[in-house]
Amino acid sequence: MPHHDTYEHLIALLDAAHVDYQLLDHEPEGATEAVCALRGHPAAQAAKCLVLRVKVDRRTTRHVLAVVPGDRRVDLDAVRTLYAARYAGFSDAETAERLARSVPGTVLPFSFDPELEVVADPEVVAQPKLYFNAARLDRSLLMSGADYARLAKPRVERIAGPAPQ
């Protein structure tokens, strides 16, 4: 699926589910802190989406889309423990792009690939306003965390590191 199709797939999914959402156009940006400034909201309201490689054992590798608040880091030890795995780390760029069907900085908190399991931190789904790049560097989407959870059906687990002080 080409990257532009990922955006179209997302919009079709939201429209079919009659989800209330808003599109926000802005200067092209993929870094969470910078795009939050462009959109004009606190980073805690952003969904930071990271593709991880989780090695359960020598023969079993799983791919996880970790979704955490934009002002937090993913806790790799929590992900490793969650899967009773030997290792959890960031996926290489080529694999991440293939599974997420978008380029870095535009990864959605949704998975359109059966090999990519979505795990979202509870603070993400609790957001009344949740912002994320819409598979494009120049367009973001705003929707509620509850609608996101209903539609994406992520596994909800504590995977975010400590809140900033």
Score class of each variant (00 low, 15 high):
130 L>V: 10
133 N>R: 12
144 S>Q: 07
157 E>A: 15
136 R>K: 15
156 V>D: 06
139 R>A: 06
149 A>V: 11
131 Y>G: 00
132 F>R: 02
159 I>E: 02
158 R>T: 13
145 G>W: 10
136 R>N: 05
134 A>P: 10
141 L>R: 01
127 Q>E: 14
140 S>N: 03
155 R>G: 00
126 A>D: 14
147 D>S: 14
132 F>Y: 12
126 A>P: 04
154 P>V: 09
153 K>E: 15
141 L>P: 01
129 K>W: 08
154 P>H: 06
150 R>L: 13
143 M>F: 00
142 L>W: 04
131 Y>W: 14
151 L>E: 13
150 R>Y: 02
130 L>K: 03
139 R>E: 11
148 Y>Q: 04
147 D>Q: 13
157 E>V: 11
154 P>M: 09
157 E>T: 02
129 K>Y: 09
150 R>Q: 13
149 A>G: 07
159 I>V: 12
136 R>C: 09
137 L>N: 03
157 E>Q: 15
155 R>T: 14
154 P>S: 06
144 S>E: 05
136 R>H: 05
142 L>H: 00
151 L>A: 05
133 N>Y: 06
159 I>C: 07
130 L>I: 09
159 I>P: 03
142 L>V: 15
138 D>K: 07
157 E>G: 01
155 R>V: 14
143 M>C: 13
151 L>G: 05
155 R>F: 02
150 R>S: 13
130 L>D: 02
140 S>C: 05
147 D>M: 08
136 R>T: 03
158 R>I: 07
